[in-house]
Design a protein around this nucleic acid. Structure first.
Lengths: 332, 332
DNA sequence: CTGAAAGCGCTTACAG
DNA sequence: CTGAAAGCGCTTACAG
């Protein structure tokens, strides 16, 4: 590997000049510039990001901390984050936290020792210690869905409450008369918001009762269990709004096993818009988050923070959209 | 951030001693050792991996280059790779190549400038230039599925040909009398091997004809199209072996639209064992690759290469397993 | 417009 | 067992 010194020698200048040329900081004579161009070309020189990092500059690297890349929500997000990163010359380190604070803390230490430029938190947990660590190390970070408790921070999320309302509106318009809801873990803001959207939309109806809301775990099996509970409590419901797509898939499974027809007897709607919703039978209606856009945005924001283009922290709330499909198609 | 100098000062020794203690290279007096421990603890000192990297040591980082993390095969693989990496103190950089040689070359340059320790290639393409770049830079790499043409390299793959045979065996045992195959792009070794497994298993039958094999693109839509073609050519087939799960999902969709019942009229079997196969209706029988194990293994191999524990290149071929589910359940 | 020199935080022979 | 010093490949005031 050629170094800056090799380039300097070949071009007949000092390394300082090479550096200035490379960083476009300070003036460089037109002739020298051409010489440098040639030398770099000839030597196939690529500056060492590691050396730059040590010299106090950016390592052109940031981390994406998420619960689990195997969870179908995250691959698309990660893809978007990486697409934007690579456009701006950044590289992204993938971290699976399993929502464990311990793992996150550990990652943060490792990441600090690597001088990374920033962190995207797509993890549900975000311990106080984590935040302190990052704040005290002065490392830029941006969050998905959840803001840290005591520190302002840019947050990208989608309008979950409105999404909840949209889901109910759609079901009502489809002619549904009694709608149950499977909500996700309440420590997750999106799950809570969706639940609120549901409640707001249905509490005025005389068919509404709190027992129409049952908790799930945001997983397929949780959706299955919750559906069983719900159908047992209220055999007469004709619609289920699942707090996320995975649980909606579970609902589909459970209903199929019970011999309940979807959408004829019970309509099902999910939330998130993951790809899986297209391959179920029937295909699943869902309130889609703009997952890719969210990833792209959060990535772009972090990079701007790193580069100092953005200062103020802000909340970016993106719109969700209804994707109507077979699972709610009723003659209603 | 405390530096090695701070630790040295506090412990009343030289930085060299601190370094020796940290790296467990060379002897350190028991007393000094205790002092160092205390100093490090008190200062909350974490060595800079960047500085170490510049000083010629490992950056404790490697890259995973894959076509697209959104492709459902890869998240589980990535998860396994990262799990093992993090166990060994490594961090993994995620790269989506979209199977474009240009992007790969670009990544390799960027990665080199970051002094990464190695690369896992899970990408289909692997251009000659890529290999040359890596070999000449002396950077360790391991491949998934495909070996580079002219350079030995450790490869992890599964027994695709045997998988093809297994699929046919299973269908025959289920009572199928005429089996079509949708094969994937033939530049992909696994697709080719699976096709060979199919051909070997069926060519002796009098019902066999080459027109029973139709090409797909390893995607859902490709599976749909290929199924249409296949059913048009051979309305009498009673089984489809799809070269991967995504195409099997497409087959399910296409058959459903045609009003063909699965498995009663046509049985369907996929390949890969991605999670999606559990959520189709009917659930999809598949030949599962040990995806997680493959990722864990390839990661472990790379780390050993990096640490110099492994020298010889080798091919690791893992077994596939049949996961029988509804889509092939016939009274046959 | 350009160069000499110090510094980023480590490691590693080389002496002692 | 331990320290002084050079070096990894850059950047950046500071002079000129």
């Amino acid at each position: 590997m050629a170094t800056i010194r090799d380039v300097a020698k070949l071009a007949g200048v000092s390394v300082a000049t090479v550096s200035r040329y490379l960083n476009k900081s300070g003036y460089v004579n037109a002739d020298t510039e051409q010489n440098l161009k040639n030398a770099i070309e000839k030597l196939n020189y690529i500056p060492s990001v590691v050396a730059r990092g040590l010299a106090g500059k950016s390592t052109k690297t940031f981390a994406l901390i998420l619960p689990d890349i195997s969870n179908p929500f995250f691959p698309e997000l990660a893809r978007a984050v990486e697409d934007v990163a690579s456009t701006y010359g950044f590289t992204v380190i993938l971290c699976n936290s399993d929502s464990q604070v311990g793992k996150e803390k550990n990652y943060i230490d490792v990441l600090k020792s690597k001088n990374i430029d920033g962190i995207i938190f797509a993890s549900n947990t975000l311990g106080q210690e984590d935040v302190d660590k990052m704040v005290s190390s002065n490392i830029p970070f941006v969050c998905l869905d959840r803001a840290p408790t005591n520190k302002t921070c840019s947050v990208v999320r989608s309008n979950n409450r409105e999404g909840g309302r949209l889901a109910i509106k759609h079901l009502l318009e489809a002619g549904c008369k009694k709608i149950g809801h499977i909500y996700g873990p309440q420590e997750l803001i999106p799950a809570k918001e969706r639940l609120i959207g549901y409640e707001e939309s249905v509490r005025a109806f005389d068919w509404f009762s709190p027992s129409l809301m049952v908790q799930g775990d945001f997983g397929i099996n949780g959706g299955i269990e919750a559906t069983k509970t719900l159908m047992h409590r209220h055999p007469d419901i004709d619609a289920i709004f699942a707090g996320n797509d995975l649980m909606a898939v579970g609902a589909l499974k459970a209903l199929h096993r019970m011999g309940v027809k979807v959408p004829e007897q019970v309509a099902v709607i999910g939330f998130d818009g993951i790809n899986m919703t297209e391959i179920t039978q029937p295909e699943l209606t869902t309130i889609a988050q703009p997952i890719y856009d969210m990833g792209a945005l959060v990535s772009r924001i972090l990079i701007k923070k790193i580069e100092g283009t953005i200062e103020e922290d802000q909340i970016y709330e993106l719109d969700v959209t209804l994707i109507p499909r077979e699972s709610t198609k009723r003659s209603g």
